[in-house]
């Protein structure tokens, strides 16, 4: 066996706390649940997934076994919606997590086949993430499954396979990189004066506010367009940057420089800012939140453990009255 293959096998055989995977499960699940409940709240379940003339689900073909089994009607649209909601709710709380995750992916894919124009990129991303997590041990923490296993005296191990997080990491990097090299319009580059974001922010179909403010901040939108391209094309750099961070004690000038400049954190920070900016200015539904929900996979398990310990300390200090406040209270 070659050295490279051994290293490859070892990479995917690593173990780590389930924190990141559990966080993504809960975050992505909540986003999807919110979106599906919003469809019901707006009274659009039949409009989106029932066939014409009741709704807009013109899709069909051999791939849609749900239509063959349940028939294509307003009732079957409602049935699919219910199955998807129950499955994603169970997945989010970690009850029968693997079955729930796979059920959600299969049913939600059928809904996407039925109404292809109503299925956006974020829906595909969420299906990919849930499919990977359904094969993971993301339910080893903060889940009904973990609670039941503890009660039965067979708790999940402290460390679970890390490969689902690493695969999600690769998926997230690819989404951005692919998004970058598919931006073929000249507006995304210098030949189009980096006007893409100004154009999008002015588009009445997408903008949250009137376009009046865009011209006042036009140079900033150009800078933001260039930053988006740098961020997306730079996504693969997150692989060496994360490696440099994880092996900070090893020698190497480039490693030291990247770690000192905190390039990994800068990339993550730009991503967070990019999505919050989208959420604030464009009406893209759950897209920014769904993407941010995957971000915990970018962190090292050790960082999440430290963050959790810090939060617990803060919460403990907050919930437990400090000696000074207790003595002050006793004096009064």
């Amino acid at each position: 066996m070659s050295r490279a293959w051994r290293a490859w096998v070892e990479l995917w055989d690593r173990r780590e706390p389930a924190t990141a995977q559990a966080l993504v499960r809960i975050g992505v699940g909540l986003c999807m649940l919110f979106d599906l409940l919003q469809v019901r709240w707006l009274g659009l379940v039949e409009a989106v997934w029932a066939p014409p003339p009741v709704g807009m689900a013109y899709g069909g073909g051999d791939a849609v076994w749900a239509a063959r089994w349940f028939g294509a009607s307003a009732e079957s649209a409602g049935l699919l919606w219910w199955i998807a909601v129950v499955a994603i709710a169970a997945f989010t709380v970690g009850a029968l997590t693997r079955v729930a995750g796979l059920t959600f992916v299969l049913i939600y894919a059928q809904m996407a086949h039925l109404a292809p124009d109503c299925d956006r990129g974020i829906d595909i991303a969420i299906r990919a993430v849930v499919a990977i997590l359904a094969l993971s041990s993301c339910h080893a923490r903060w889940s009904v499954d973990a609670w039941i296993r503890r009660r039965l005296g067979r708790p999940f191990p402290e460390l679970v396979p890390a490969w689902p997080r690493l695969l999600l990491f690769a998926q997230l990097i690819w989404i951005y990189f692919s998004g970058g090299h598919n931006k073929g319009g000249p507006e995304w580059g210098p030949f189009g004066q980096f006007a893409a974001l100004a154009n999008v922010l002015s588009d009445p179909h997408f903008s949250r506010f009137s376009a009046d403010w865009v011209s006042a901040l036009y140079p900033l939108t150009q800078l933001a367009t260039a930053s988006v391209m740098a961020f997306e094309y730079g996504a693969p750099l997150m692989i060496p940057l994360t490696w440099f961070h994880a092996t900070a004690d090893r020698p190497g000038r480039l490693r030291r420089l990247c770690n000192r400049l905190r390039l990994r954190w800068i990339w993550i920070g730009v991503g967070v800012g990019f999505h919050i900016g989208i959420a604030a200015t464009l009406r893209l539904g759950i897209f920014p939140w769904g993407m941010l929900a995957i971000y915990p996979v970018l962190l090292h398990p050790g960082e999440l453990v430290a963050a959790e310990a810090w939060l617990r300390r803060r919460a403990g200090a907050w919930l437990t009255p400090s000696p000074r406040s207790t003595s002050a209270r006793s004096r009064t």
Partner: peptide, 23 residues
């Protein structure tokens, strides 16, 4: 890909031209 309706070509505002529409 068909079972999960998955694909790996990601596009978000791939083109952002100045000619657009208002419904």
């Amino acid at each position: 890909g068909s079972l999960g309706n998955l694909r790996q070509r990601w596009k978000l505002f791939a083109g952002a031209p100045r000619k657009r529409y208002r419904m």
